[in-house]
Every structure is written in structure tokens, then in C-alpha cells.
Computed example of a mutant assay.
Amino acid sequence: MKFPTPLQSATLIKRYKRFLADVTTPQGELLTLHCANTGAMTGCAEPGDTVWYSTSANPKRKYAHSWELTQTQSGDFICVNTLQANALVKEALANKTIKELTIYNTIRSEVRYGEENSRIDFLLQESGLPDCYIEVKSVTLLQKSCGYFPDAVTLRGQKHLRELQSMVEQGHRAVLLFAVLHSGINHVAVAQHIDPTYAKLFEQVQKLGVEVICYKADLSPTEIVLREPVSVTR
């Protein structure tokens, strides 16, 4: 996925009110960016980090600039715009990059399903095969050389695990797909130390047949591509 216009760089001053961040440009201009990431963003928003941002031509936007990537002071790139994860996975599915899912040719997005008023990120279909339900989660938390999900207690994530389990019980295929959007992460684990309930559910649904797939993105200020599988450990 190429960015439609080149990203510009700035230095992060602070993130605040969840949706906003103040930065300074190389020319010394103070800008306020919109931040699409409502999560904790642990390790992704340290003052002094380099921020890469896009600019919208829409005159109705209150904040024209959007925070896309963080480049940490140690040199790692992180995609902090959570809206990009599904776009990357959709591109990878269409390009047959995710080898575990290449047998499907119909890709549907945001389909209502389940008993808890949910929308599945992707529903894959192919004649003669069970439907395949895919829930996408982006991984950006790096701790002690390991990537972790979630980075905060997630009731929504717990609900998604229950919904995936229900799809398996109904005879469908269900996949939890981790998209690693941090260049420093080379393997992933469930963050039991952050959300033990999620970790317990994760182990339960795996035993019942929910598949776990994990792919890492190549990240740069010009392009993000979901490219290579990485391992998920317990």
C-alpha cells in the first residue's frame, strides 16, 4: 500500500485527548495532528520521536494532518494509524500474500455476524468450501524483544474471540489474524500480563479450532506492505 502523497516528518511534542498530537516541523512550525489510534500506544508516542504525517485536501476537516507512522529514537518504524491495518490485510488477501488463505476468491468486508452485534473484518468465500471469518488485530506493543496483543484490557477483543468460537461451532472457518505493524517485532505473544481474561479466552478458542495467523509489515514513509509470516508463542 503506497501512500497517495509523500508523508512529511516532524518531532513529537505530546499526544493528548487520545485523538490529538502536537508536533514541530523541521522549519519550526507547530502543528496539531489528528490521531486515529484510540489505544494506549505504549512505546509508540514518546516525546522526541519522529512522526510521519499525511495531509488531507478536504477543506471540511478540522485537522488537515493525520499521524501515520512513528519512527522511534532507536530507529524502529511503527504504523500508529489503526485504520490502515484492514487496508493492508485486504491488499494482502487480494494479492494472495497470506498463503494460508489463498484458496478463497471472494472477499467481503465489514459483514454483520454473530450473536453479539458484531461485524467481521473479512468474510472469505469460495464455492464448495466453508465460509472463512477473519478478525484483524494490529500489533504495535514491543516489550523485551516480543510483540504483545492487546496493549490494554479489551472487552471488544474478548467479544470477538467468542464470536469466532461460535463460527467454528457452526461449521465455519474462523481466523484471528495479527498484523504486526512495528519493525522491531519478530514474534508475537498474547499479553497475559495486561489482559488475563483475553489470554484465557485466546487459549480456549484455539483449542476449539480458531486459527491464529500472524504476518509482519514492511514499513517506510512511502509504503507499507504486509509481507512475511511470524510466529505466535504462548
Rank of each mutant, 00 (worst) to 15 (best):
E68L: 10
R18L: 12
P130W: 07
S109E: 15
T154S: 15
L7D: 04
K2C: 09
V230E: 06
T42M: 10
Q192M: 05
V225H: 10
L7Q: 06
L7G: 08
Q192P: 00
K216T: 07
P6L: 02
N86A: 07
V80S: 05
A64P: 09
G39A: 10
G128E: 06
L181W: 08
L31H: 04
E223Q: 15
M167Q: 15
Q73Y: 07
T72L: 08
V205A: 05
P6R: 03
T82F: 08
L20R: 13
G28K: 02
L123K: 11
V188H: 08
L161H: 03
A40G: 02
P47Q: 04
R227F: 06
F178D: 08
Q84L: 15
N95R: 14
D151I: 02
K2S: 12
H182P: 08
V80F: 03
V89K: 01
R173V: 15
Q165Y: 10
D151L: 03
V205W: 02
I120F: 03
K200I: 05
G39W: 05
V139A: 07
T11G: 06
P130L: 08
Y215L: 05
R119C: 11
A152M: 11
V23R: 01
M1E: 10
S9M: 13
G171Y: 08
G184F: 03
R18M: 12
I134A: 05
S166V: 04
Q204F: 01
L69Q: 06
Y133T: 00
V51K: 02
F77W: 11
T38L: 13
H65N: 13
F149T: 01
Y148T: 02
A92V: 01
E211W: 09
H34F: 15
S54T: 01
Q71S: 06
N58Y: 01
H34E: 14
K90H: 14
A57F: 07
G75N: 02
A85K: 00
D151N: 15
G128A: 06
Y198W: 08
K99A: 15
A57W: 01
L177A: 07
C79V: 11
N86S: 08
Q143M: 10
F77L: 09
A179E: 00
I213V: 15
L141V: 01
T106N: 11
P130T: 02
R119S: 13
T55W: 03
N186K: 12
T106M: 09
A191F: 06
T70V: 07
E115P: 00
Y16V: 08
N86Y: 00
G48A: 09
S9L: 05
T222Q: 15
T70M: 05
V139H: 04
T97C: 07
V205R: 00
Q143Y: 09
